[in-house]
Simulated assay, not measured.
Amino acid sequence: MKITDIRLGYLSVPLKQPFKTALRTVNSVEDVIVKIETDTGHIGYGEAPPTGVITGDTTGAIIGAVEEHIRKRLIGLDLENFEEILLTLDKSLVHNTSTKAAVDIALYDLYGQMFNAPVYKLLGGYRKEIITDITISVDTPEKMAADSIDAVKLGYTTLKIKVGVDAEQDFRRMKAVREVVGYDVQLRIDANQGWKPKEAVRTLKAMEDSGLQVELVEQPVQAQDIEGLKFVTDQVSIPVMADESVFSPKDALMILHTRAADMINIKLMKCGGIHQALKICAMAEIYDVECMIGCMLEAKVSITAAVHLACAKKIITKIDLDGPVLCREDPVQGGAIFEHSRISLPDTAGLGFEHINGVVWKS
C-alpha cells in the first residue's frame, strides 16, 4: 500500500452557539481536511483546526506545510514501513503540530485498513466506549448556570466550566453552576492560562473553602510559566492539569519529572498526532500520572482519532471530546458514534470513515 497523493480540502461546520474561552470566541468549526490516497484504492482521512492562539497554526500555514514540505517526502512511501513514514513526517519541518497531526491521523487510518482492524485495537484495545464531559462556555454566571442545567438534562454527568476571564467573577460563575446542578454532577474548570499564580491559588482556595467540590483545574497559568504552574500545584488541594504547557513528549517529561502538575491533557493537535501522543502515554504510565484526552474545536475526523487513542490506553482516565456535539450538524459519515456523553467505536477497519460531506477540495 503505497502513498500516491495527498489532497487538501476546507470544511466549515456551524456551532450550536458561540464557544467562548479566556482566549477566543468561535462561531464555527473551520478545519483543513487531509486525504491520503494509495495505489490500492484505500483512502485515509485526517483533520487540522487552525487554532492560532494555541498552536500557532493558521489555515495558510497548514496548507503550506503539506504542499511545500510534507507531500513530496511521503509520496511513494509504503505503509508497510510505517515507522519510517512517521519519522519522515516528523522531520519534514519543525513545529506545525496540527498539520503533522492531520497527516498522522490519515496515516493511522490507512494503517488500520491495511490490517483490516480498528486503530484502537492495534494500539492496545483497552475498551471500545468512553464517557465525555461537555464544555460550558465562559459567560455571565446566570447564562452558565442555565447552560449547565441544559447539559445535565441531556445526561452529562461531568461539566467542564470555562473560566479565567476575571477571578472574582469566576468564583461567582462556579458558585452559580454548583447551586443549580447539585453535587451529583462533577465540575472541572479550565482557566485557559487566564490567571496569575497567586491569583489562581487565592481563587482555587476560595472554591475549596466554599465546598464547591472541583474535580480538577486545567492550565490555571500561562503555558510557559512552569514555576507558576508548580506553585499552584503545591499550594492547592484541587488537582492541577497541564494543558497548553505540554506540546511534546519532552514537555510532558519535564512536567512529570518536576511534578509541576498532577495530570496531563493530551491533545493530538498540540503534540503532532497519535505517534507522539503514545510516547506521552508511556511516560505518564511510568510516573503513574493520569491523563486526559482533549481537543480543540474540531469536527469528527480528528476527534475520532482521539477516541481511538482513549479507547486503547488505560492511562487516559479523563475524556474531553465534545467537539462534535457542539456542532449544529455532523458532516462525517462513519467514525466514532456520539450519543450525548457516550462515545463508542464500531469494529470497522482503520478509523472507520465512509465519506465527509461539504468538503471543498483544493485543486
Rank of each mutant, 00 (worst) to 15 (best):
Y10I: 09
L15V: 10
F19N: 08
T25I: 13
E30S: 12
T38S: 02
T40K: 11
Y45D: 08
E47D: 10
P49C: 02
P49T: 15
E68R: 14
G76M: 04
I85C: 04
L86E: 10
L89G: 09
K91G: 13
K91D: 13
V103E: 01
G112P: 09
Y120T: 03
Y126V: 03
E129R: 13
T132A: 03
P141S: 06
D147Y: 12
D150H: 11
D150S: 15
Y156V: 00
I161K: 08
V163L: 07
D166K: 05
Q169W: 03
D170R: 11
D170L: 06
R178T: 09
L187P: 15
E208A: 07
D209V: 07
S210A: 15
E215G: 00
A223W: 12
Q224S: 15
D225F: 04
D225T: 09
D225P: 13
I226M: 06
F231K: 11
I238A: 02
I238E: 05
V240M: 01
S245V: 10
M263P: 06
M263G: 00
I264L: 13
I266Y: 00
G272T: 07
G272N: 02
L278T: 12
K279H: 10
I286P: 02
C291Y: 03
C291V: 06
M296T: 05
I303E: 05
I303G: 07
T304F: 01
H308D: 01
L309F: 01
L309H: 01
K313H: 04
K313S: 03
I316M: 02
P324Q: 02
V325Y: 00
R328M: 14
Q333N: 14
I337V: 15
F338T: 05
R342M: 14
S344A: 12
L345Q: 11
L345Y: 01
G350K: 04
G352F: 00
F353V: 06
I356R: 03
V360H: 09
